[in-house]
Design a protein around this nucleic acid. Sequence first.
DNA 1: TAGATTGTTAATCGATTAACAATC
DNA 2: TAGATTGTTAATCGATTAACAATC
Lengths: 217, 217
Amino acid sequence: MNISNKVLGRLTRYRALLTEYFPKEKTHIFSHELAAMMGLSASQIRRDLMCLGYYGVPRYGYEISELVKYINEILDASKLHHVAIVGAGNLGRALMTFLESRRATLKIVAAFDEDPSKSNRMINGVPCHSMDAAEEILRREDIRIAILCVPGSEAQRVTDRLVRAGVKGIMNFAPVPIRIPVGVALEEIDVTSALERVAFFTNNRANAPKERRHADR
Amino acid sequence: MNISNKVLGRLTRYRALLTEYFPKEKTHIFSHELAAMMGLSASQIRRDLMCLGYYGVPRYGYEISELVKYINEILDASKLHHVAIVGAGNLGRALMTFLESRRATLKIVAAFDEDPSKSNRMINGVPCHSMDAAEEILRREDIRIAILCVPGSEAQRVTDRLVRAGVKGIMNFAPVPIRIPVGVALEEIDVTSALERVAFFTNNRANAPKERRHADR
DNA sequence: TAGATTGTTAATCGATTAACAATC
DNA sequence: TAGATTGTTAATCGATTAACAATC
């Protein structure tokens, strides 16, 4: 079965919620409980869990430790990924700290920046190099995932370099869409666009973007 | 006509691309040109533009300045919004700088943090206050939009306070879902989840999340 | 047992794409 | 005119929800 990007996103969030923000003394959870916490429907939770190959028990719900184990398996959580931050401006540096040891399997091992004052030294515990060294270090450190935090005007050019150097997954924070060849994964996070959407619905209260409400469903 | 969150998101990105990253000398654009730049289909571009009330001309395409004017109108771009950053940790501080003057109508006028060492002073040009002062300042400054950058364990509690103080739109960077009452807009940006999705598809190259490729459609 | 919850299918809803007449 | 592009409808695709038999 093919797992969609949407389901995948929710699975990662179920796991985070259950492992990091859930009372340790609870061993089981019902689909409607997880639904309430996630702001989703119980139907959707159960449907998402179908792809795990793990089954709950009617009236007892899902055993949390097992659920997490099966999600780990799908996400291939044991595999260590080396990650690079490209662009060590404010956002890039904040992400170094923010992502630092959030996930043991996602390790930031290098940063790159065109500004010479930022390169050839440690920043927030991450060795920062000049962009000239990117290709060599990406290969040497076996980095296949890059977090792109360069200005919009540089984004496509830098992307092309990263891809040529063997990067297979990119998270793009630059406020322009980038194009990538087949076989490279892409997530785009456009913070400005997200803020503009919030502002829009703040003007137009009637039709809010999400219907995740306090009420149960 | 009701405009969906997805269409809205794309409209903001069309505008950003056309106003910030497009050669000034070009006055017109075809749907297939914009499509290629955005990594979308020409059909989708044309469909999205239907909701603007602006019409292109066959064989000449869309006049860029007019297109932008109509998108501005939909997004109500002339309206000034006061925005607060809640949680002045690494991410919050980076967003202050990142969003600083990116959009003239979205102005960050205050930050809040529980850490006393961060409050009652300017940080990156934004006055930072203690959380205790939040309610009063949110009302005084007429702040209806908040960017939530607190730890996951605090997210729901802080959200409830913000909503009680009159906040109508929240962008949530905390790595847990938050629940909000009807009438409040919400965008969630879970950076860790996004990175985990990229990592997943980097393992499983066959089925990448987006099919935005170099090839035209 | 009776009642609550699961797994799964079918129905619904919404978003994208394809197709094409109208138009410049 | 001929050819390219638009606006819009219908078809397709994918995701969510509702419903319910099976199960504990």
